[in-house]
């Protein structure tokens, strides 16, 4: 007990100074130099067990719920899904026809044809409780071929891009994060605008829009593909409100993201067919894929 009476071999002030010095060094290296990227990948892999453990109760609960779900309800869901699938298949036929036609027309115009994109489903395993950053963690990492800057979409539209990768997890920064901006093009007028996140999952701001703009409330913005990160032609947001205050240099335009950013669960990771890293699938997934009818090329 007596040894504990004089426990401070190093004074508290020294400890505090040392800890703060280290923390400031880290902040400087991470924020100003951006030198922590490779170390971050390692650290993300180290903490990924915590993230997997944190979702386990929820997943277990989901499991239990789906176990006790009545047979009738599952049957009903099944018929619903079959109907949906039929509908989508019908639309897909038309889509494939259009793709072929588009390729032919592009050939006539002697421009490059669009590439088929590869996709992989990823599940959100953690949503950040840090209100200053809009990020989610998904259950795919370098082991699956995920790379930094990879575009991420969901069933409705663009969700964000990959910011960090660990071995089995990746951190996706959402388009609503205040440090994120995405180049878009309005559907009808074709006007190019940059949609900037403001830290609110239901809102994006359009930057540098002149007062004389032809943009209208209700216009849908699609990704323009100009930044080189996001592919062209995916829906991003719908214009909600345009405020033309002449005392300000630009019109204030706010838009609502089309993807439901506050309740995302299943996401799709996209790969260019020409990009360096390619999706790595588990054997089970490959088998499943090969059983599907092979899509006709050209």
């Amino acid at each position: 007990m007596s040894s504990h009476l004089f426990l401070q071999r190093v004074s508290l002030k020294t400890r505090l100074t040392l800890a703060l010095l280290l923390a400031f060094l880290l902040i400087f290296a991470d924020h100003r130099l951006g030198a922590m990227q490779p170390i971050r990948a390692f650290l993300n892999s180290v903490v990924s067990p915590v993230q997997y453990l944190a979702v386990m109760p929820e997943q277990a609960l989901d499991n239990v719920i789906s176990q006790v779900q009545s047979r009738r309800r599952i049957m009903r869901e099944n018929t619903q899904l079959k109907e949906d699938n039929l509908l989508l298949q019908g639309q897909l036929q038309r889509f494939q026809f259009l793709v072929r036609e588009n390729d032919r027309l592009r050939e006539l115009l002697a421009s490059d044809s669009r590439e088929e994109r590869l996709r992989m489903v990823a599940e959100v395993i953690a949503v950040d409780s840090d209100p200053f950053s809009h990020q989610v963690v998904v259950n795919k990492g370098t082991r699956h071929g995920v790379y930094i800057g990879q575009p991420v979409i969901d069933a409705d539209g663009i969700v964000g891009q990959v910011a960090d990768v660990g071995v089995t997890t990746a951190r996706v920064i959402l388009i609503s994060d205040q440090s994120h901006a995405i180049p878009t093009r309005a559907e009808l007028s074709g006007i190019r605008v940059i949609a900037q996140g403001v830290g609110d999952t239901a809102q994006l701001e359009l930057m540098h829009v002149p007062h004389s703009t032809e943009l209208q409330e209700g216009d849908v913005l699609f990704s323009s593909g100009l930044g080189g990160v996001f592919p062209e032609g995916y829906p991003v947001a719908r214009i909600k409100r345009i405020t033309r205050d002449e005392s300000l240099p630009f019109a204030q335009v706010s838009a609502a993201p089309i993807a439901n950013l506050d309740r995302i669960r299943m996401l799709l990771l996209l790969w260019d067919s020409s990009s360096e890293t390619q999706p790595v699938r588990s054997e089970a997934e490959l088998r499943e894929q090969s059983q599907r009818p092979v899509e006709e090329q050209n």
């Binding site: 991470d30 840090d130 950053s133």
Partner: peptide
């Protein structure tokens, strides 16, 4: 910091 994805060192400090 690592878990929340904030800049490294904010919560540490």
């Amino acid at each position: 910091d690592i878990l929340l994805g904030s800049t490294l060192g904010f919560h540490a400090a």
